[in-house]
Write a protein that binds this DNA or RNA. Structure first.
Length: 473
RNA sequence: GGUCCUAUCGUCUAGAGGCCCAGGACGUUGCCCUCUCAAGGCAAAAACGAGAGUUCAAAUCUCUCUAGGACCA
């Protein structure tokens, strides 16, 4: 499989899987699947201070929840230090890198001097031709960058970008504590893992020429690059915690469906004509870097919520009930798929799902079903539970209690008939009834929910409402 | 500060010289439907950052400026 296409997602486990990382992973995934290639997961945990086991779990769980399957890995950079060491030695022995003994103070003063003389504040290569190697002195290892010429980054998103090599310094590849630097390990790993296409955020664009130097130094082929624009918050700054929820996990907890989040993320920077709603297969079939936008996109929670609503509506009530289970459990509501009232709950979900944009909303809107004693919305009670309604409620109550079959079709004529007979608009009686039965002014169709709740609970709640009004006046 | 990237409705975007007095989607507003709220249907407001040039013709090509962003320090 010499010509196999191989891409990688390489997060640092220093926090949860965030929205931006998820989209980078998604683009990698789609590109790999579209081209029958492989996706490799690599955990860049060289920063031991900030990397945590919990973050690794969060990233893996997040990717799994989104349905982004990888083919190889996870590989951990922390377990590959020997490999990096070997590559440092190689460059050193080939004289493509050198030890630099300049101290922090020296570098700092040279920098300020250069700045004062309006020269570029890059390392002046003092140690590059140094012959003697002072013993016992701390040193870093620097790469010998080309002194002139240009380096071209061929990017599938941004096109050809030309860098002047004079602008780039002899960068450090191994710190004085013996740890390799980011640009170095990335190249070693990408080479070792035979990565053919590097797809990452465009915040790495400026690192790329340095990485190309390293590919050349190792005589390895340079992969194709795709630097995708970042995701911004409303203030156009890179998306961060202060813009609100930015972790994949938090969207899961707020009742978003993974297919909605994936669909939203893919349209942030990628488009396929006027199409807005995509299944995973449609994304895979149509994905290409030809239609990736070059500019950063602002994250818009409203549109995500709308998409989530469309996906919720497409789900069957049975599927939604299953998705609801962890949320029910979290609220200590003892409902399982085998509950005796399972079929009523499914009916209620069917009536409610069209009104919900998240699983949490869906659950909130059905709370009157799970409670024995409902509380009335204050404002609505003041407005709707007036003494003149007592008579209406009592009459309807009488009518309903005389029904043989308590179904939507039998309930409807009772209430509509009463409204017509007493010269009321249907709303005049429906709204107080809705409040009596659900505690709120917004719900699915009144007759439908009456049937679902059943005779006993409906009659009891109307009686309670009557008592409530009488007690208050 | 240096380097690099970017620039179409509030937001995501279509647009690769004439099909564009700029299309779709979210959001917003109005109307219809209606027991409430949604959903659905219909309609409206809303954009080519600025200035030069190239061209018979520019949102689309070139340059300058401006603004935003990223990276390095």
């Amino acid at each position: 499989m010499e010509n196999e296409l191989r891409v990688r997602f390489a997060p640092s486990p220093t926090g949860y899987l965030h929205i931006g990382g998820a989209r980078t992973a998604l683009f990698n995934y789609l590109f790999a699947r579209h081209n029958s290639g492989k996706l490799i997961l690599r955990i860049e945990d060289t920063d031991r201070e900030r990397s945590t086991e919990a973050s690794v779990d969060a990233i893996i769980n997040g990717l799994t929840w989104l349905g982004l399957r990888w083919d190889e890995g996870p590989f951990y950079q922390s377990q590959r230090t020997e490999l990096y060491q070997q590559h440092v030695e190689q460059l050193l022995s080939e004289e493509k890198a050198y030890r630099c003994y300049c101290t922090q103070e020296e570098l700092e003063s040279k920098r300020t001097m250069a700045l004062a003389e309006k020269r570029k504040p890059i390392y002046d290569r003092t140690c590059r031709e140094r012959k003697e190697q002072p013993a016992g002195m701390p040193y870093v290892i620097r790469f010998k960058s080309p002194l002139y010429g240009t380096t071209v980054v061929k990017d599938m998103v941004k096109g050809n970008i030309v860098f002047n090599n004079e602008e780039l310094e002899d960068f450090v590849i191994l710190r004085s504590d013996g740890s390799p630097t980011y640009n170095f390990v990335v190249v070693v790993d990408d080479v070792d893992m035979h990565i053919t296409h590097v797809i990452r955020g465009d915040d790495h664009l400026n690192n790329t020429p340095k990485q190309i130097f390293l590919y050349n130094a190792f005589n390895y082929p340079i992969p194709r690059f795709a630097h995708i624009p970042l995701i911004h918050g409303t203030d156009k700054a890179r998306l961060s915690k202060r813009h609100g929820a930015t972790s994949v996990e938090s969207y899961r907890e707020e009742g978003y469906l993974p297919e909605a989040l994936v669909n939203y993320l893919v349209r942030l920077g990628w488009s396929f004509g006027d199409k807005e709603v995509f299944s995973m297969q449609e994304m895979i079939d149509n994905f290409s870097f030809d239609t990736i936008s070059k500019s950063a996109a602002v994250f818009n929670p409203e549109k995500l919520l709308w998409l989530n609503g469309t996906y919720i509506r497409e789900k069957s009530a049975e599927e939604l009930l299953q998705l609801l289970e962890p949320f029910l459990k979290a609220r200590n509501i003892p409902v399982t798929l085998s509950s005796p009232d399972h079929s009523n709950l499914v009916k209620l979900i069917d009536e409610t799902k069209i009104r919900s944009r998240s699983l949490i909303e869906l659950l909130d809107m059905m709370d009157y079903y799970f409670k024995e004693n409902i509380e009335y919305d204050q404002n609505a009670a003041n407005k709707l539970f007036t003494t003149d309604r007592i008579h209406h409620l009592e009459t309807v109550l009488y009518g309903l209690s005389s029904l043989d079959r308590f179904s939507k079709d039998s309930i409807e004529p009772i209430i509509k008939g009463y409204a017509a007979d007493s010269g009321l608009k249907l709303g005049d009686i429906a709204q107080p009834l809705r409040l009596a039965i659900t505690g709120r002014t917004v719900s699915p169709g009144l007759f439908e929910i009456m049937e679902i709740l059943g005779r006993e609970r409906v009659l009891k709640r109307i009686e309670q409402a009557v008592r409530f009004i009488k007690n208050r006046s």
